[in-house]
Write a protein that binds this DNA or RNA. Sequence first.
DNA 1: AAAAAGAACAACCGCCCACGC
DNA 2: CGCGTGGGCGGTTGTTCTTTT
Length: 371
Amino acid sequence: MGRSPFCDNIADGLKRGPWTPEEDQKLLSYIQQHGHGSWRFLPQKAGLQRCGKSCRLRWTNYLRPDIKRGKFTLQEERTIIQLHALLGNRWSAIATHLPKRTDNEIKNYWNTHLKKRLTMMGIDPVTHKPQRTTLGSVAADPKDVSNLSHMAQWESTRLEAEARLVRESKLLRSQGGVNVDESGSNGSSNNVATSSDEILKKMPTTFAPPRCFDILKAWESRLILSESARGNDHDRTLKRSVSTSSGGTNGGDHVLADSASASFGSGGNSDVISYSTAPSSGANGGSPLGFDGIFDTWSGISGCDDFCSEEVLATRHLEDNYDHRAPSDDHDIGKLIQSGGCDELYNEVNKNYWNDILNLVNCGPSNLPVF
DNA sequence: AAAAAGAACAACCGCCCACGC
DNA sequence: CGCGTGGGCGGTTGTTCTTTT
């Protein structure tokens, strides 16, 4: 089977590169009036000097009205990392759990933000395991690993089915010639589409993950601890991201981070984390487990004192409220902070990260809503 | 003030699969 | 059943903007 070329733009004299507002407008108005139909013939019908595939990508990734742009929320980050741990780089499957986000956007965000952060934390972004385990903090029982893998397969299969239903539903709606609005409602109902909708309604949503399906608690612990450790030292990258976020305001995003920074009296554009520009004084000589970013950050402040403060606990409490989960584990961390040193804390946080994953296994698929 | 470096994001490339003929 | 095509998908590249030197 021969592969069709992406677009023979040059030979056809078609335009490439960034889209102009005029082109966007042409594409948008055409699709709004006629639907996209066959992408192959759309450009000439719409008066565009682009190939069909380019138009499709532009529409799918940028112009679609049901796309949300701008910075990712903490909740979205959590979802992405959770799903990536289970599914790997299957961005379309991940995107089905992030309403209004495209697979391309998620992929880009992963590659430019989350992957780096995990790496800086010493976590392999591919396997989601610590890159170094010299202290043996990871209880890598082969049975647990096997169970986790098995469960990942279940989740993967489920997400595939879900993604398929979403696609089918959207397709059927579009065949009805009506844009799908935010709520997914549709003026021209279709029997099959309605059926798909009903199925979808019964599926778990992105924002209601099963309790035992939470890989990221430890991740968030690190975020908060790092944030508090930084105090007034705002991340430069972050400021930049806030100032340049294409979609405008922060508007309600980063609730937790904002609250946290407010509680420290630091004010300003604080975000969740950034290890990328953390000072590297080397006072600790690096972390024993490879979380150099965190330890550099920690060592950049005045010892552990700032770190083991009420502010940290308050922050953790904020997160509890945000997360709607019982705060017991987090408070245990708080106690540890109060009673012990940073190394202990570090080990505990690291252990909790993997305990959470193993808890996921221990909860068993039967506790999950869909399996 | 200007150049260099880095970060972020949009767009492109090419493989793959499903489907229709 | 085999072939051709449309479209989905993940990886990569190119461009733009910001920050640093």
